[in-house]
Design a protein around this nucleic acid. Sequence first.
DNA 1: ATGTCCGCGCGACGCGGA
Length: 257
Amino acid sequence: MKIATYNVNSVHARLPVLLRWLEQAQPDVACLQELKTPGEKFPLEAIEAAGYGAIWHGQKSWNGVAILVRGSTPQEVQRGLPGDPEDLHSRYIEALVNGIRVGCLYLPNGNPAPGPKFDYKLRWFERFTIRAAELIATDTPVVLTGDYNVIPTDMDAYKPERWVDDALFKPESRAAYQRLLAQGWTDALRSLHPTETIYTYWDYFRGAFERNAGIRIDHFLISPKLAGSLTAAGVDRDVRGWEKTSDHAPTWIELAL
DNA sequence: ATGTCCGCGCGACGCGGA
């Protein structure tokens, strides 16, 4: 079973690239972030024509997450991150797919830090950590994937010193990520490639991709039950070089079930 | 500090967000 995550940075602007990548990569499950569209404008027809069913949580202008499943419509089990009825951002959706719980998240960016946006990021992270604890305590295998907006360690940035004041790399953000992992989750890409340089995002400025000036912020956290089934993980780096592409590249894992 | 891409509300450019 191949599960992928892709921050598309507008599902409308990215539709040709998204469809081309789905055709090429053939993931069984694809978690999307930053749809940047209200729910009623989600391009379901084009995605169904590509062979995928979908659930999504949209929002005008910003955020938005979706889960695509090849050949069927995912069974939605949660829409929106629980724990704060006043938080209206569409940043979390969860589905049951072939007995696996798949959580798709778009964690807040948090810049500038310090400030109210950084405070929101850390509060959201705490709520997500509570949800993760609930899920890991169940018998169901779980995959939590998406844009975590966290650079976990120095080796996950081309020049870590350039990121020290950034919300993605602040000690509070990294500590929150480590607290999450400490529940028992495996960072799938890092576990299979412990010393390799892996980036999933290159910004649009200064030819960052051409210089490989990237960071690793899209992650797969898998529950202990799944750790032994992890057979492969990687980044579809070539997609980042396509015309009209996202600033993120699709990232994926394979599970032998 | 710079730079680019996206959606939006305008009114074909500037702004917020990333």
